[in-house]
Amino acid sequence: MPKLHGAHLLCLAAILVASCTSTDAPAARTEALRYEGVETRLLDDDLVNFRVQLRGDAARDEVDAYARCAAAQYALIRGFGFARHVRTNLREQGGVWIADAVYTISPALPRGLQTLDAEVVAAACAEQGIPTV
């Protein structure tokens, strides 16, 4: 795994913070969040589909973060250090939010704008209490 220094670390930290925080003031929750599990499906050697469900008074970015956390931890489990977001479809059905996300996983930082350093993201998820795989 390549070592990241200076500007690379600052860039990754900025991306992580921007993707995990909301600029809107949080509204009072009427129902606590319940993370209802992650389903993973390997589509190819480095292409993985994650389906996550979140019940409660959730916002779209919280459901997206749940899928991102699952992808980061899965990459680590498979011995990879990075993931790249391909797409996420979000929907709400009967009070349950569902994210259907696809990520590539890789040992080196992939090209693209929506890349994740799996270690950094998984640690942030643990700090925020977001479960992973």
Rank of each mutant, 00 (worst) to 15 (best):
M1G: 14
M1R: 02
P2L: 07
K3T: 11
H5Q: 07
H8M: 12
L9T: 10
L10F: 07
L12R: 10
I15D: 12
I15W: 11
A18N: 08
A18S: 14
S19V: 11
C20S: 15
T21V: 08
T21H: 09
T23C: 09
D24S: 14
P26W: 04
A27S: 14
A27Y: 01
A28C: 00
A28W: 01
A28V: 14
R29Y: 02
T30I: 12
E31I: 11
E31C: 06
L33N: 08
R34P: 00
R34F: 06
R34C: 10
Y35R: 04
Y35C: 05
E36V: 04
G37P: 01
V38W: 12
T40V: 14
L42C: 06
L43H: 06
L43P: 01
D44I: 04
D44R: 14
L47M: 10
L47Y: 03
V48I: 15
F50K: 07
F50D: 05
Q53G: 01
R55D: 00
A59M: 08
E62R: 01
D64C: 05
D64T: 10
A65S: 08
Y66F: 15
A67S: 11
A67G: 08
C69V: 11
C69S: 13
A70L: 03
A72I: 04
Q73W: 06
Q73E: 11
Q73L: 03
Y74E: 11
Y74T: 04
Y74V: 04
L76F: 09
R78A: 14
G79N: 09
F80H: 15
A83C: 12
A83Y: 05
H85T: 07
R87H: 10
R87I: 00
R87N: 13
N89D: 13
R91G: 09
E92A: 08
G95D: 05
G95C: 05
V96A: 08
A101E: 06
V102N: 01
V102Q: 14
P107M: 04
A108I: 10
P110G: 13
R111G: 15
T115H: 13
D117H: 12
V121D: 02
A123M: 09
A123H: 11
C125F: 04
Q128K: 15
G129D: 06
G129H: 01
I130E: 02
I130N: 01
I130H: 03
T132M: 14
T132C: 07
